[in-house]
Simulated assay, not measured.
Amino acid sequence: MHRRAAALAVPLTVIALTVSSCGNIPEEWRTPAFMRMDGDQLDSRLPTVTGDVGEAPEVAFPDIEPPEEELSGVVDEGPSEEELVRADDLVIANVAQFQWTGPGEGEPVEGQSSYETGAPDLIRMTDMPEQISSVLVNQAVGSRAVYVFPPLTEEEQAQAESMGQPPQVGASVLVVDILDRFGMGSVVPGEQTTDGGDGLPTVTQEGHSEPTIEIPEGDAPEELEVVPLIEGTGDEVEEGQQVIVQYTGVRWEADENGDHPVFDSTWTRGGAPFDTTIGAGSVIKGWDEGIVGQKTGSRLLLVVPGDMAYGETEEEAMGAPAGTLVFVVDVLGAFDNPPPAEPEEGASEGAEDGGEEAPADEESPEGEATE
């Protein structure tokens, strides 16, 4: 998610999205349509939301005072042939917030709509509060949900203001459009057209499983090598986008037993897809240069020389894997990030420039391919 949750009303500040470590559930086990929890009549106190899912919603507020309790419901159900959201998914959604200020009155909250920025939210369902996740689980991609959160108490209002939020008036209304989902063990579609080789590592991978990487004899390449094992058909990944990937990494150099054990992998975390900003210094240089420009839906073999990986400083100080590294990366999706916030008047222009090396992505667990 684009760290917008902290700017929402206090009841939603718990939407802090971090890496999940749930068990691996194959895609073939997704919830069948007949188990969907639909058909419940919507609460008449819910605002009326119009417009197509995937486009900015129009919201009409009932001619009553904002309710003093939480309300929610699915106002548009996605096509029955679409995949259903599971409780451990990474969901791509457009989110818009409104403030219900009085009978029949309300307005959008400025800066709180991904439709304005063109950058959808990445929502890890395992980190959602129950009142959010219970509505989305078992709904099809293409569905739209609406939530109403009651006006803040005096204590909550004080907490919100202490976090730099403007005063909240009335109830908060959240509209969530489900655009896509990525499940535990998601991989790119298609068959490998090459397994690498010819002086480079050889990769085999069966279905929704961790790839096997065999390192050839001989010296590692001195330059970055990028080989599409499966060439995707999606758009090219752009610098500054958020990418969603499955990956596995091993060292080219063998250990004392002659093996090349995995030093980091999403598969060791149950196949939970990893997301990060690409091309902006949040990950190692070999990822930034190797993934930008590749098509989404691709499976990539990356052979990353040491000077484009962690380098001697981090290898020594942080125990990062040394030397040339080999990754197999499934590029599941790529989505725009919101534009950077405009600096406050009088702020130093130099503060915007963080230098060449950005801090590690805050969602990366220890051992990720981050600098």
Rank of each mutant, 00 (worst) to 15 (best):
T202D: 03
L136W: 00
L46A: 12
A56W: 02
M37T: 11
E236G: 14
R3E: 14
V75K: 09
F327V: 09
E116I: 12
E345W: 04
F61N: 09
R3P: 00
Q159K: 15
T324D: 06
G170H: 05
P47C: 08
P167S: 13
G306D: 13
V175N: 00
A158I: 06
E368K: 09
V326R: 08
Y247R: 12
E68L: 14
E316Y: 08
V331K: 05
F34G: 12
F274R: 08
A347I: 00
G142W: 03
I64A: 13
E366T: 15
L179K: 06
A334E: 01
G196Y: 06
V109E: 13
P228I: 09
V135S: 02
A347C: 04
E82K: 15
E156H: 10
T248D: 02
A341T: 12
D361F: 12
W287G: 07
E366F: 14
R3D: 15
P167F: 08
L136A: 03
V10W: 03
A145V: 00
K285H: 02
V326S: 06
I64E: 14
E77C: 09
V245C: 08
P216S: 08
E206D: 15
Y310T: 03
E312V: 09
E356F: 11
V176K: 00
V188R: 06
A158Y: 01
G354I: 15
G234C: 05
S162R: 06
S114T: 15
T296D: 00
V169N: 11
D88L: 12
D88F: 12
F263Q: 01
Q205E: 07
G281T: 06
L90H: 02
G207T: 01
D38H: 10
A317Q: 15
